[in-house]
Write a protein that binds this DNA or RNA. Structure first.
Lengths: 202, 202
DNA sequence: GCGATAAGGAACGCAAAGTATCTAAAGGCT
DNA sequence: AGCCTTTAGATACTTTGCGTTCCTTATCGC
């Protein structure tokens, strides 16, 4: 029985490395992730990794991009607050400590590596299925006459994710239900009403 | 002329180390700050530092606490938007890249060191002269009848700093005037109006 | 002045980054 | 099929910096 020592190349190898990096990230986090461990786990060696990515941050970002979660359907609870709570809650659950530890770590390196900063900024600020979900929720509230018609600036559409990430990173703990409630009731709902009112008056 | 080789101890030495750490932080940033460099700069040695702090993060946090900027008088431009822009602008200028690089770095370590997480969380969420300034500005706007009377939840008082920090850290660049304007006009002013309106209706 | 305390200095072991070098396997080409 | 270019895989090396240990000696309290 001959052991096929198939030596992987190209895309196949790349996928193996990114998967290894992702697994490693989930198990030990960004700070403890070493190139050696990723190489070992992928069954390859460090030089192979360095030929493809500039360093830890770029590797991890690439692994992250390959593992973006699929966005579920926008919630539909029948009320604006209900929909927002559900959405914020989903974001909070997704923003687990692994994710934030990674973002913090990558941020730290982004200050020294402009390419990393660019990738990260793009990832964090670009329109995502999530900002679409925000628009959908607000549109539904408007069509129910729960809210006057309102145009959402991009910054406002981004805000839910920004708020949760900020909360989660500064507290270093999972975001509690109460915090989610406070973000929705003290910040986001009032903001939507205020925006609508100011736009109405011109 | 005898050279007094005064060997410092206690509080005096501690101050010297913290000052050295702060200078080092300003010159090379958190990621490149090494204990060896701090020791050398303070004219002491590593063990002396490790006898006082648990590691880089704790040392840097201590240095930061010793160098909190004095809060200037709350602005008084005569309008809510004007005051807020001035305040947001001040925060943005203070949240320079050094500061954010440090916060990001310390955050990265906070996930592994609960004491660090506690110190950082306290520092970032506690009432500060800054949250007081927010209240003052809003109170003045209310007394000018520019805004209905409104009660600010703590989260809303914290929000300016959170928004700027988030912006500054995710973009990795100084926060521009336009961004400040957008945060004030698209987010904070509408939020205040919305809060006031919702509180009015009960 | 004496003894406890703690600073200063040097060196160590360790871990991990990033690099260099060599080999041999895979794939393309004729 | 056989050659040739590419590049994976393995190993080892240099460098850097952390955190620690050990020892000497200055300073302080009494």
């Amino acid at each position: 029985m001959t052991v096929t020592k198939s030596r992987r190349r190209g895309a196949e190898l790349e996928r193996a490395i990114l998967d290894a990096a992702w697994d490693e990230l989930r198990e030990v986090g960004y700070a403890r992730l070493t190139m050696e461990a990723v190489a070992a786990r992928a069954g390859t060696s460090k030089p192979v990794i360095y030929r493809r990515w500039g360093g830890r941050a770029e590797l991890v970002l690439a692994a992250w991009f390959r593992n973006l979660p699929a966005e579920p359907e926008p919630p539909d609870t029948g009320t604006l607050r209900g929909d927002l709570r559900t959405l914020f809650g989903r974001i909070a659950r997704r923003a687990d400590s692994m994710m934030n530890e990674m973002v913090a770590g990558v941020m730290g390196e982004a200050f020294r590596h402009p390419e990393v900063a660019a990738l990260l900024g793009e990832r964090l600020t670009n329109p995502t299925p999530l900002t679409e979900a925000v628009s959908t929720i607000v549109d539904k509230a408007v069509s129910r006459a729960e809210l006057p018609p309102v145009e959402l600036p991009h910054r406002v559409r981004r805000l839910p994710l920004d708020l949760i990430r900020n909360e989660s990173m500064t507290c270093g703990a999972p975001v509690s239900e109460e915090t989610v409630a406070s973000l929705v009731d003290d910040v986001y709902v009032p903001l939507l009403h205020g925006l609508a009112a100011l736009q109405e008056d011109g």
